[in-house]
Design a protein around this nucleic acid. Sequence first.
DNA 1: CTTGACCCTGTAGCGACTAGAGGGTCCATA
DNA 2: TATGGACCCTCTAGTCGCTACAGGGTCAAG
Lengths: 141, 141
Amino acid sequence: MATENSLSIGALAKATGTTVETIRWYERVGVLPAPARTSGNYRAYGAAHLERLSFVRRARDLGFTLDQVRELLQLADDRERSCEAVDKVAREHLEEVVRKIADLEALRHELQDLIGQCRHGTVAECRIVQALSPRGGSSRS
Amino acid sequence: MATENSLSIGALAKATGTTVETIRWYERVGVLPAPARTSGNYRAYGAAHLERLSFVRRARDLGFTLDQVRELLQLADDRERSCEAVDKVAREHLEEVVRKIADLEALRHELQDLIGQCRHGTVAECRIVQALSPRGGSSRS
DNA sequence: CTTGACCCTGTAGCGACTAGAGGGTCCATA
DNA sequence: TATGGACCCTCTAGTCGCTACAGGGTCAAG
């Protein structure tokens, strides 16, 4: 560690449950500001970086895209503004999640139907294969 | 259209609800065999291609990966074998879908909690921002 | 002085496409 | 016969969010 009170990239990774590569990547795409460097060209992070990276990780764990994270970070930086916009981002993300759940539920039903119809004979009689084929039925190509 | 009874790539796309680009891509990655060509170097598809592409699309719509699709196609081609393996692929995929639904449900709850706590004040007081921040509380950086 | 853990940059790969550049082909109409 | 426009061709690069190298440099302990 370079000067007093700074974190190496590895230490920051451990502290936030991230990998070193991911941190470098966040810097490249601008979600985490480039830190100071030591004499040996090592990155030296401070408390602000730790805080910011934790924010990013929490948001990513909640399924926000990096674009949304960038937006949230910008909004969160202006502490006096109303949090309406923050609320909006979160609500839109929630809607997206709800949509995805519905899509997957529909998928689940279709798959269960398919699997339930399988009589464990030959492929030629297999309902799963038939359901995947053009006319859902006796395909003799 | 080159000879009698063959489809251009555009016609095949329309018939299967695919795009031309996707079809060419399927050929490149080996899920759809390369068709004959006309004198002008246009792809000329037959009934077998239409059938195979429909199979691929149905399977993709059901959320199977292209690797799984390749596997299913191979299995489906051997009409006399038992359909056990087909069943297995489908069951594994179903399990994956069920896992994803559970993950998204957990996410949905977290997001709903978060949003429900927002009191629409300033960002400084915003529960959403706080929840994303390191110690979930009053961060004065 | 060497070993090994750590760090650096830069590039390529994943899955499943999508988009675009820069051209060629085909057919109907003027 | 010329021309316009719809279609087709190949090749390349971009998407998202990392992950995984390759080929080096730095640093502290023994």
